[in-house]
Design a protein around this nucleic acid. Structure first.
Lengths: 229, 229
DNA sequence: TCAAAAGTGTTCGCTATACACCCATGG
DNA sequence: CCATGGGTGTATAGCGAACACTTTTGA
């Protein structure tokens, strides 16, 4: 039985999807959420969450919808970083995909609505992916790296309150570098983007907890301040 | 008479176009190439060059095709910077557009193939544009600005050989700042990305001519060097 | 009481910035 | 010969990298 094809155009149109690279941070490593495909092509392979763009939503809404379906999160930081258009990237038909990356707090993530199997993978331990998703993931990682050099997006991956040590681990995981603990601490203090919280965890010596001060950041940015890492 | 609509799909598909923000530099100001629309909607309005993506070409090839049609250039530096997807950005039907910016040397540009009227506008003197092209142009400008902070893309806008003064004017035009002439000169020397040419123009005192040394740049970049502006 | 982790100081070198200065050329 | 613009030098401040030190707390 032939499917009913009722949307007709004078010229051929590609399909348009959004794919979403969802990053999380477990305190040590940067992770990415992948879905096991239940249908062909690439059945059984891991892939990025994604789906077709609806005719009445913009791409950002589509990406947020995917995010919600897989993580239960109503909102998160997302950023469009590239659109992938190689003519044969999907074996079935011409599909272009508008790719976003999302930064979420791992502890906020519930299982998704979907029956599909979803799993977090450390970035240095990602299996071969379906379609051109390896390529998309690599570009997402490098764009995130570039992004964090100039904007304090890393805080989206941390809990509301965090220690400087956690923040440093995050930057080290994303940028793949090591910082001197003491210099990092002072740099953070000097930036004046963090607010110290009068509270403490329970470690050897209780480290101070901080919050990101978004208001202060916007103020500084407005004055031409440029973040550097 | 109803048009023949022979491309049919089970689900609705948007149209996909590429738009191209073509930047040039006249020695003083940054300019952008606009096309006067010959047909409705927005007939008579200025717009960015663009057109439908063919089913057998990737978006970059589409953008290069648009570039060639409007400037006669076979090749140039182009960069995809955003895809615009607001559902009602085109009044006729759902159209999403993959936007690129191109950096070209003004002196290399011929008139295009198209009969359409094309004109260079200084960035601070752009008329109201068709569709959401104002928005696209603003984003292109800010992305170019961001881009030039880290990569030496500015040379794509200058002739093969140029003086330091011309280079400084370019950076000042793009970043909208002023540099000290003498510090800029030394910074450029210090970067070692320029090769001095044993030739001279005929001014009061002949300034040295330089060329961008791409090989050297790639070498430095490979060693983890980061350009800063 | 000792080891481990958190917070604070100090030094050094590089680079951005703000200037002063000399040189060449054309009117 | 002097105004204009091109190339070079020099001093200062600020920041990042390297590393010593003190403090707190749990085992």
């Amino acid at each position: 039985m032939e499917e009913e094809k009722k949307y007709c155009y004078k010229y051929p149109h590609p399909s348009v999807t959004t794919d979403c690279v969802i990053f999380g941070f477990d305190g040590t490593k940067l992770k990415v959420l992948l879905i096991e495909r239940g249908i062909d092509p690439y059945k059984g392979k891991w892939a990025l969450p994604g789906g077709f763009l609806r005719m009445d939503e913009c791409a950002e809404d589509g990406a947020l919808r995917e995010l919600r379906e897989e993580t239960g999160l109503e909102t998160a930081f997302i950023k469009q970083f590239h659109t992938f258009t190689a003519p044969n990237r999907d074996p079935r038909e011409r599909v272009i995909t508008i790719a976003y990356y999302a930064l979420v707090r791992l502890q906020d993530v519930q299982g998704g609505d979907d029956a599909a199997r979803a799993e977090w993978f450390a970035l240095d331990n990602v299996p071969a992916l379906a379609f051109d998703h390896d390529h998309i993931l690599r570009m997402a990682t490098s764009e995130l790296r570039r992004h964090i050099h100039f904007e304090p997006v890393g805080f989206e991956l941390l809990p509301q309150q965090f220690t400087i040590k956690e923040l440093q681990s995050l930057y080290e995981a994303i940028l793949d570098v090591k910082f001197d603990r003491r210099n990092f601490y002072k740099k953070m203090q000097h930036l004046e983007l963090l607010t110290q919280v009068n509270d403490s965890t329970t470690a050897r010596r209780q480290p101070f907890l901080f919050e990101f001060n978004d208001k202060k950041y916007k103020e500084l940015k407005h004055r031409g301040f440029r973040l550097e890492f």
